[in-house]
Design a binder for these strands. Structure first.
Lengths: 122, 122
DNA sequence: TCACATAGGGATAAATTTTTCCCCTATTGT
DNA sequence: ACAATAGGGGAAAAATTTATCCCTATGTGA
């Protein structure tokens, strides 16, 4: 586990939510778990662009922040299921609002992002 | 300017909004600009934990993504004002939803975050 | 004359996040 | 014996983001 060298800011709501949600795949993990994809292998299939490792790491952080809970079934082969805690569920409308804005502005965003990338990258 | 080595994912709304909003200070910048703090030096004072440099960089990205516009007054000493574009203004309710969730859960989040930090950091 | 405010950029270092690669668990089926 | 399955973790590399430091320019006030 990486050991932080600097303390995070915890002043306002934006700081606080950032600490628990600021990870490349966290919102997607919460979203898909909420949709019923509870097993790690399912989540990996839903988010193929993320490495298996980082999904595990971010799931553990979500668990430590009490947004998801984890059940380990003592069977072989192993079986694990994640689900949202009540606290985690309160985040769904927020993630929804974020995703909806992105969806609503899809074409414009894609073109803006690509235009900027091209001008810098080569 | 840093040149990306890998292309970003631009599949869904979450990917897209992430590309324009995923920067440590971007939401705060949009927020404070919306509140009327339009000059770079004001913004630096409102966000003292960020380095001057990174604020400039993130402001430029916000501008390239057409979320803010920048007016440079040809005077000495220099004067610059940022303001939200109409597009940028549509993000305010989203940022508001995010910040409100953080504010509403302030104590719980702070304690969860600190507890986790302590257990890893020393 | 000197310090300060204003805005911003280059170069480089440091911090942090994410990826890659490889190993381990134990059982079932071939 | 050996592969497949399902889940997980260590170590190191790569990618990315943020911080530090120094330099530009000019008018104002002490």
């Amino acid at each position: 586990m990486y050991e932080r060298k600097t303390l995070p800011n915890l002043n306002c709501g934006l700081d606080l939510i950032g600490e628990v949600l600021y990870g490349k795949w966290k919102m997607r993990l919460l979203w898909f778990i909420n949709e019923g994809h509870q097993r790690p292998s399912e989540l990996q299939r839903k988010i193929p662009d993320a490495s298996r490792r980082v999904l595990n790491i971010q799931l553990k952080e979500l668990e430590e922040h009490e947004l998801v809970s984890k059940i380990i079934y003592p069977v072989v082969p192993p079986k694990v299921e994640y689900s949202l805690t009540d606290f985690g569920k309160t985040l769904i409308p927020v993630i929804s609002a974020i995703g909806n804005w992105g969806d609503a502005n899809e074409e414009r965003l894609r073109s803006l992002i690509l235009k900027r990338l091209e001008s810098y990258n080569q």
